[in-house]
Simulated assay, not measured.
Amino acid sequence: MSDIPSDLRYAASHEWARLEADGTVSVGISDHAQEALGDVVYIELPEVGQQLTAGQQAGVVESVKAASDIYAPICGEVVAINEQLTDSPEMVNGEPYGSWFFRVQPNDAAELEKLLDADGYKAACDADA
């Protein structure tokens, strides 16, 4: 089974969310998602300043096998994007939980509690298998 850190929250669509010390939320894709995609070759990120709603498409990840949409796990304003992924998208394959895609200033940080915890995400992945 893929690595599923217990300190993160997860969307059923395979994004992870981490509350940072400054109150922003970092978003990336799970180890399970990057394994399913294979070698990542391109990442399209949202614009800084863009308002996102939970479940809204926020970007795209392309691999040698497929393209997959990235969805916002919570509502908020995009305050940063990980520029390194534009030049080196393969970083996601090597370190999916260190390679955040974008950060949002959440409208309501309590929305994180609505996401899956590690056990819930593992159960969702097992159900898909």
Rank of each mutant, 00 (worst) to 15 (best):
A109V: 14
Q105T: 04
V92R: 10
G94V: 08
S2G: 12
Q34E: 13
E44Y: 09
D119F: 01
I74E: 02
P46T: 05
D126G: 04
E77Q: 14
L8Q: 09
Q57M: 12
G120S: 12
N107Q: 14
Q51D: 14
W16S: 06
G23L: 02
D117Y: 00
H14N: 12
S63L: 07
L52R: 00
A36Q: 13
E111Q: 15
D119V: 11
S26G: 08
I70E: 08
E62W: 10
S13K: 13
I4V: 15
P46G: 10
A58L: 02
V61M: 04
A21V: 12
F101A: 13
G59K: 02
P96T: 08
Q105V: 00
V48T: 13
Q56M: 08
S88E: 15
Y71A: 09
V79G: 01
E83Q: 14
G49M: 04
L85P: 12
A109H: 11
Q50A: 15
G59P: 08
A36D: 06
A66E: 11
D87R: 14
R9N: 03
A80D: 13
Y71G: 09
E20Y: 07
G120F: 07
Q84S: 15
D39V: 09
K65H: 12
P73E: 07
A12W: 02
A123T: 15
C75M: 05
Y42E: 10
D128Y: 09
V78Y: 00
A54G: 12
V61H: 04
T24S: 14
V41G: 12
S26R: 13
D3T: 14
H32N: 12
E15R: 06
L52W: 02
G38N: 11
S30H: 04
E35M: 11
A21S: 13
K122C: 11
I74L: 14
A54M: 05
E15T: 04
